[in-house]
Amino acid sequence: MRVRDLDETALLARIFPLLPVGEGVDVGPGDDAAVVRAADGRFVVTTDVLVEGRHFRREWSGGYDVGYRAAVQNLADVAAMGARATSMVVSLVMPADLPVQWVTDLARGLADASGPATVVGGDLSGGDAVVVSVTVHGDLAGRAPVLRSGARPGDVVAHAGVLGASAAGFDLLTSGAATPDDGAPGAATSRTPYVAAYLRPEAPLEAGPAAALAGATAMLDVSDGLLRDAGRLARASGVDVDLAEGALMRDVTALVPAAVEVAVATEDPDGADRARTWVLSGGEDHGLLATFPAEVADRGLPNGFRLVGDVRAPADDAPRVLLNGEVPHVATGWDHFRP
């Protein structure tokens, strides 16, 4: 059955039962708009979009994968503010020949990734390619939001989550060294964690509120690469963020086997070094990069965080990200408007 075989009402009737119904929603899907409670008088809001051919390929990603990923990338942004997600709105553009099963799988992926967040509505439209837009609301529970602009000299830099795994999965797929099936649950290959990390990233969502409670001074979601996002934090705070490459070596070492596989598949004799590039510049792992006062680190960072650098006063009027005290000579990460 294809989307064109159903009208909008019939398609929605297949989607709604698959989506979670949570607390804090007075009016859910079915009316002109939803009504969601904001317990402390404020709510966090973020939105993101996935475009077929730009952010995902249907020959690699099923509907479940795309729904899961669309939810996670927004949920991570809410967590990076120190909040917990409460509700989301989802809009879907799709061609008429898209299988209905693909759409219901997308709903299942959204539901499984969303945790306590309820899908309260959205929109459907026809188009030439699949486009998924998700808006998520979050609750700060009375706390101040953790911004990118609060880092101060003397703070430590910490990271929660994984680095480079999603980029490794992407390169394994594009090189032909892996297939999408290698990311399926239970697939017994060494590539499985990386392909799975690309298709269905796992973000350390609870680490965000935990960091806020512990006194994080700044935080953001690492979606476009460690160096690029650390640079954003540095510029917002007016500081230098100095990352210690030694603290990242375990991530690099773990990715070397995947880098070798890509090197063999692409006949690239220097390809093994791409593991370092994945860690420094690879995006879409959706970990959290945060800064904390030194005394917080002395007492013990929140669960899941590890030290990866420190914050310094800028050497001049150009705050920047550094690697071992020097400007890094490596690609800094993903840019939506550049190849």
Rank of each mutant, 00 (worst) to 15 (best):
W102V: 09
G82W: 08
Q73I: 09
F56V: 04
V100C: 00
V51W: 07
L75M: 04
R108L: 11
V90S: 02
Q101F: 08
R54W: 10
V134Q: 00
V45K: 07
Q101L: 11
G127M: 03
P29V: 10
A33N: 12
D26P: 06
V49G: 03
H55Q: 07
V45M: 11
L124G: 10
P99A: 01
M81D: 07
A79T: 04
V36S: 04
R84F: 00
A111E: 00
T118I: 11
M94S: 13
G109K: 13
A39K: 00
V100R: 08
A33M: 09
A38T: 14
V130N: 05
S114A: 15
V35F: 10
V27G: 02
G62K: 09
V132K: 00
A96Q: 09
V51H: 13
G82T: 04
Y68Q: 13
T118D: 08
Q101D: 15
G53A: 02
T46D: 15
S133F: 06
A76S: 14
A79P: 07
A83F: 01
S125H: 12
D97R: 07
H55Y: 10
V27I: 14
V89Y: 02
A80Y: 13
V66D: 05
V100Q: 03
A113P: 05
V25C: 04
F56E: 02
G126K: 09
D77A: 05
S87E: 08
A33S: 14
V131E: 06
L75R: 05
V35G: 02
D48T: 15
G115R: 01
V100Y: 04
D112E: 13
F56P: 01
D128C: 00
R108N: 03
V103L: 07
A38H: 04
L124I: 12
L98N: 01
T47A: 14
D77E: 10
D32H: 15
D112F: 09
V27E: 12
Y68I: 04
D65M: 13
V78E: 02
G82Y: 08
S125C: 09
D112G: 08
M94Q: 13
D105T: 03
D77H: 10
V90D: 06
V51I: 15
V134A: 01
S61E: 11
V130F: 06
R42V: 14
G109Q: 09
R57G: 10
Y64E: 11
Y68H: 15
F56D: 02
H55D: 15
V44S: 06
Q73V: 13
A70Y: 11
L106C: 11
V51P: 00
V100H: 04
